[in-house]
Simulated assay, not measured.
Amino acid sequence: MSDVKDLSDDRTAEPAEVAPSDTKKSLGRLLVQMGRMSSRDVDRVLQKQMEDNCSFGEAAVALRLVTQRDIMEALARQYQYPTLQGMERRDGMSRELVVGHEPFGAAAEEFRAIRTSLLHSHVSEGLRSLAVVGVHEGAGATYFASNLALSMAQMTLPTILVESNLRSPRIAEMWNMPRRSRGLSEVLRHHDGDPSAVITEVVPNLSVLLCGAEPPNPQELLCSPEFAQLTQWLESRYRVVIYDTAPAKEFADARVVGAVVGSAIVVARRNRSRTRDTTEIVERLETVGCNVAGTIFNSH
């Protein structure tokens, strides 16, 4: 993976790295099931398709029966590509979840590119855990961690997103989840690995472990033997474990998490994060034995 990745590219992308599970489930049938067109509309599209020698989607858009967005949503369903389309809580989910809301847009494609690099340089070597470390408050660590986790799940890799930011947690708000009474802080405080604290199948292949109650002693909890044991327990059950962490300039928590899980990505804010601060965070992580897989300059 290159050391620097820019998330401001404006290219568009097609569905990638997935295969259809049922080729008999036609695009027309899916659009009817989605309420985007009627059976009579499908007949019109098929006629147009034969006349113009084009794809079903091109014919449907040309007849103005559906939009290109409708076609892409139907393709995602046809390929069993997890998105936020059609989910009950979707309207309350943050638009920051670009991989789910706009799965074929420019930002989602950037996350797929980063995912591919990590799969080759990180996951393929047997490494399962990755801490996402924001240089400072507002750098975009939660945005990056959430979208990276969702992109991993889209590859059908069993993935869990762990909210180890016990200072200013945002994942519940971003994903439109109720704040749970049990989360990471309770698991660590009560010295148990109770799996009921994990929210499973938020989307296919993606689980979440929220912060829980914000504790008065977050760094002490993360330094505990229970946290190290929990990381091992999670690695035994998930192919990819992504940790959202507290901002590194303000708190030392991210270094603690990085030292335990062994690998990290540093997220800096373009035109806001200072180069000196970013370099210092990378050096601090490396000092505690954490391999920094790359630095992301976030323009979101």
Rank of each mutant, 00 (worst) to 15 (best):
V202N: 01
H122S: 03
L118V: 04
A172E: 13
A106R: 04
D3K: 08
V240Q: 00
R189W: 10
M37F: 00
G57I: 01
K249V: 10
F227E: 09
Y243N: 03
E186V: 05
T278Y: 07
L150I: 11
V257K: 02
C54A: 14
G35Y: 06
P103I: 02
R272I: 02
L30A: 02
R272W: 03
G105I: 05
A113I: 11
A59Y: 02
L157Y: 08
M72L: 14
N165M: 12
S55A: 12
A141W: 06
K5Q: 14
M155H: 10
M155Y: 07
A153D: 05
N205Y: 15
A113H: 10
L46Q: 14
L209V: 08
T83V: 08
K5N: 05
T231C: 14
L46N: 14
E14R: 12
F297N: 00
L7S: 13
G140D: 08
S146D: 03
A107L: 13
V202F: 09
A172R: 06
V99A: 09
S55L: 07
V45A: 12
S273E: 14
D10N: 04
H191Q: 12
R40A: 07
R180K: 06
T231Y: 01
S185L: 11
L161E: 06
V282R: 15
I199H: 08
D3E: 10
V261F: 02
E96N: 12
S2W: 10
P216G: 02
D43M: 03
V266D: 05
H120Y: 06
E58P: 00
L230H: 00
D22W: 05
G86P: 01
D6E: 07
L65D: 06
D43F: 06
A264F: 02
T116M: 00
R128D: 00
R36H: 07
V256I: 13
T279I: 09
V42M: 10
R89T: 06
T156N: 15
P247Y: 09
E96C: 07
R44S: 10
A293K: 01
M155E: 14
P15Q: 00
Q78R: 13
V133N: 08
F251C: 01
D41F: 07
H300I: 12
E173N: 15
L75P: 01
E286N: 09
S185V: 09
I296S: 02
L161N: 11
Q68M: 14
S168A: 12
